[in-house]
């Protein structure tokens, strides 16, 4: 574990050096992602200019859900973005072989191969949203609440990672599963709004099958009493751990299958 932490640091240092060399591109990346997020928040704001609440949720409460999703996703985007490229960057051109002949865990290597600059834009905008929403909510914030918020955000990020990892793993059998990963990732858009607005079937799906509900709605619901999900929301970290374990086990299976067919 300590070895991998140090190794990650070395990888990250190299990436940062490169990023600093292309400063303009770094800024374009950060700025464009911020604008992208800002556009979708502004949409919600425009709608709320004309109404009071959606399904009992005020503008700032929805903003809060949004903020948790954006911050959680930034963890995924900054550190684990390379999972998207497993098929076309590693398996198709045979570059995965390069990782398999090194004395490190291949998943670690894939993940460490990239640090995604645009994710920093996501992080900044996520924190800004949270900073805007939280003071407007009728909550008491103590150390325990802040600690819980951090845990919830990390869990949210891990669920994003686990879901992407799980579906990227299909690349071991079909060379590039990017379309699947992309389609599944788009489901995370559901989680921007209170799950209670959806049909029951969709709610169940986002809770038990592809658990994007735990990336935003449930963590936010923990802090908002009237939601009625306060207790259920406590399962968020457990959901994150279970997702990661399942995804990693599936990855290992995929890797094994890859070793017997060799692409």
């Amino acid at each position: 574990m300590r070895r991998y932490t140090r190794l990650y640091w070395e990888f990250a240092k190299s990436h940062m050096k490169v990023m600093m060399e292309y400063r303009i591109d770094f800024l374009i990346g950060v700025f464009s992602v911020m604008l992208e997020q800002f556009a979708s928040i502004f949409f919600v704001k425009v709608v709320f200019d004309h109404i009071e609440q959606i399904n009992g949720w005020s503008f700032y409460e929805i903003l809060f859900i949004y903020g948790i999703a954006a911050t959680g996703r930034s963890i995924h985007q900054i550190f684990f973005d390379n999972l998207w490229t497993l098929g076309w960057q590693y398996i198709r051109p045979g570059k995965l072989d390069r990782l398999l002949i090194r004395p490190v865990n291949p998943l670690f290597h894939v993940v460490a191969d990239r640090l995604h600059q645009d994710g920093f834009g996501q992080l900044i905008i996520g924190l800004i949203i949270l900073g805007t929403a939280i003071p407007q909510l009728d909550l008491v914030w103590g150390a325990a609440e802040i600690g819980m918020l951090v845990i919830m955000i990390i869990s949210s990020g891990l669920i994003f990672v686990a879901i992407n990892l799980f579906f990227a793993t299909f690349s071991f059998w079909m060379i590039d599963s990017l379309p699947i990963v992309w389609a599944v990732f788009n489901m995370s858009d559901f989680a921007r709004y209170p799950l209670t607005i959806y049909h029951k079937g969709i709610r169940m799906f986002l809770t038990w099958v592809v658990p994007y509900g735990f990336t935003a709605f449930y963590p936010a619901a923990y802090f908002i009493d009237k939601s009625g999900y306060k207790e259920f929301a406590l399962w968020t970290p457990v959901a994150a751990i279970v997702c990661c374990v399942i995804a990693y086990a599936f990855w290992n299976r995929g890797l094994k299958a890859f070793a017997s067919t060799g692409s």
């Binding site: 070395e10 190299s14 050096k17 390069r98 002949i101 004395p103």
Partner: peptide
Amino acid sequence: FGQRTQLFWDIPVRESYNLLKHIY
């Protein structure tokens, strides 16, 4: 592997070697 690089594509060669130093 003659047709595929083992080095890190985007970073300078020196950095690549430095990473390999840590990996091995």
